[in-house]
Design a protein around this nucleic acid. Structure first.
Lengths: 81, 81
DNA sequence: GCTGTATATACGCTTAGGCGGATAATGTCA
DNA sequence: TGACATTATCCGCCTAAGCGTATATACAGC
């Protein structure tokens, strides 16, 4: 299911993708999350390792959730795809 | 699957649970994550809104991953439990 | 009780996140 | 190409995350 995040780059990519899919501008997301447009830009570009707090607000603005999942060491499982 | 995180409290609980299940001390996790024991304590108690960066390191130390998932608005689905 | 182990707090310090505000690039389209 | 919309950067500033170190509780087991 969800996209695994292991770096700020990963997070930025996931956020940008979700934002595009919803046809939103950085300003829109920023407003919903109560942050500046500049910060959304930074996060999407992986330019800052934001605070968890901030990340969750931005994700919420995109109707996304953060989730903790066991790190998979198992082999590729085709039934999951 | 994974546990949804919407606050630092949620995160702390998830981390503490995982740590206990692996019979690890805060010191052990701290070392693996290259942070102080005191910080692990703070995070587990939701006392600080840590940086995403730090959170990921701690989770990695517990063989956990952070994941972005769509926020579920759907009704309760018994097949998932 | 006492002793060792684990977790929670404290203090001063450095670093970096996020702000307001503005501006520079970049894209887009008529 | 010009006008507009969107995104990327920059400034100074303030706050808090995280550090090192140390200590204070809490939690065992004997």
């Amino acid at each position: 299911m969800g996209k695994v995040i292991r770096s700020n780059k990963d997070l930025g990519a996931a956020i940008r993708l979700a934002r595009k899919q919803q046809n939103l501008r950085q300003v829109d997301v920023a407003q919903k999350a109560s942050v500046r447009q500049a910060l959304v830009s930074d996060i999407e570009n992986g330019a800052t390792t934001a605070k968890l707090d901030t990340v969750m607000r931005v994700l919420a603005a995109l109707d996304l959730d953060l989730s903790v999942v066991p790190r998979r060491t198992t082999a590729f499982d085709p039934t999951e795809y």
